[in-house]
Write a protein that binds this DNA or RNA. Structure first.
Length: 128
RNA sequence: ACUGUAAAUCGCUCUGCCGCCUUUUUCCCACCCCGCCAUCGCGGCGGGGUGAGAUCGGGAGGAAAGUCCGGACAACACAGAGCACCGUACCACCUAACGGGUGGGUCCUGGCACGAAGGUGCCAGGAACAGAGAGUGUCGCAGAAAAUUACCGCCCCGUAUGGGGCAAGGGUGAAAACGUGCGGUAAGAGCGCACGGCGUCCUGGCGUAAGUCGGGAAGCGGAUAAACCUUACGGGUUGAAAUGCCACGUACACCUUGUUUCCACGCCCCGGCGUGGUGGUGUGUUGCUCGCACAUCGGCCUCCGGGCCGGCAAGGGGGGUAGGCAGCGCAGAAUUUCGCUGUGAAGCGGAAUCCAGAUAAAUGGCAGAGGCGUGUAGCUUCCUUCGGGAAACGGCGCGUGACAGAAUCCGGCUUACAGAUUUACAGUGCUU
RNA sequence: GGCUCCGUAGCUUAAUGGAUAGAGCAUCUGACUACGGAUCAGAAGGUUAGAGGUUCGAGUCCUCUCGGAGUCA
């Protein structure tokens, strides 16, 4: 299922706030990964549906001035996640875990798609 | 032909695979509600709603940007008046409206032509272009003086250094009291005259008007209004995070201000109550003043000044939530196109079309082909001062651009922009 | 998506439209000291965020651009 539909997007303002306060993080260049396990009794879990993880993508405005640049990079990250998430889902299903996930771009200049895809694959390998 | 400037138009196309957003296209499945039929029961038909899926369509810009103006739309406010504040500023027209646009006028700058010259005409570009003759202020340094001025100077009288007249020449400055010439005079000066310049007033022609071409009168004492200001016109405030509804959730806990004076009349248990008026306090009315509207209540104590408690009005501060629906793309100041009217902005009429709606925010990723641009082998032709240069064809490589991403919607303005095309103007070269 | 405001030396700031933009701290050089600090003397450092306009003259007035900050249900 190489999809990326509404219930796979992290949209709850509240959950994002908790993610940055309480979440764990690690670096998989050119990405910084912030993640937080969602407990089974959490009401936000209802929005997940069949999804194992909800993802949000962030590209800092400070380094990328124009909206065109930021949109392009966010699209590349989303595409790379969509094409590579299957292995990630297998890992999560094995552990019976739901998580909230944020990918933040830390590169200082525009990176091509191949680099981002490598970063996403690395992120999935390094995930505990 | 090339280069530059200005204006206008465009600002990559196609195919395959995998994805994203969207719906009153159609279909299918599940659940819920209503009606009818059938009934022991299972059920069948029709309509509506919700959710998931399939399918057919649609899916960023000329600036989507900056948020500089103007509207639509919405909420709140509003008996009204004055002042303040803000904005606009040659005239007419266009427009829903505008600080936008179109046309015209005036002035300035540059070029060309004509003329002895003052100047006139044509072309191109520019102008926040009302008023400095309503008032106030300011004008550093220099200079005698920066707005009713006299340093050097010129002239007359006296002759010693004084008294008086003048503003031509010199000098300072961004700016020095209409310009040139002649007369005039002691010397001079619009003091007079000729020609010219400048506005003001009266007046005639043309023009809707700004204005322009004449005639006459009295004149000529700087600049600055993107200094205060004057005049005319316009402006209620806030903006989709507005606003309405649903769901979840919390704290009427705390602090501050106000809660009243006098007069008249009536009642009675004779110091209280009621009614009316007046002022005070608080709040609202964009700011201020007037005016208007609302609140100004009850209890207890008292040394009769007032104090305390509750309620009410308003403000401060704090706590909770931060999910959904509507607003929101809607047949309209709509888009495309044709015709007519108008110098033009634009208007009127006909035909066709319905054309993005996301919300941590869709319109993408990979591969291939074409076109375009660019680099470099090669080859052909032409020119040659034999160093080389130009053009066409073409294998291979690279890039596909620049500025830039809708967020309620329109009309403008401004700013950014690789490249392509067209038109106009200017320059250079070649040919005739 | 709006609204409001700010920009002067490395930092904090001053300047009524008037000459070459003035201070303090920091920096550098010299003096003092055995050395350092403190102190004294001197120097350097400004496209007044950028561009255009008004004016004789602009940090100041006006317009546009750039950068930054605050605020809202």
């Amino acid at each position: 299922m190489r999809t990326f539909s509404t219930n796979e997007r992290l949209k709850s303002r509240k959950l994002i706030g908790r993610l940055f306060r309480e979440g764990n993080s690690y670096i998989a260049y050119p990405l910084r990964v912030v993640w937080l396990p969602v407990q089974p009794d959490d009401p936000a879990l209802a929005t997940f549906g069949e999804a194992r993880a909800q993802l949000a993508i962030s590209v800092p405005r400070r380094t990328f001035k124009t909206a065109v640049q930021r949109n392009r990079l966010k699209r590349r990250i989303r595409e790379a996640y969509r094409l590579n998430k299957q292995l990630f889902y297998e890992k999560l299903t094995a552990a019976d875990q739901h998580i909230a996930l944020m990918l933040v771009l830390v590169a200082k200049e525009e990176v091509p798609y191949a680099t981002i895809e490598a970063g996403v694959q690395k992120m999935i390998r390094k995930f505990p």
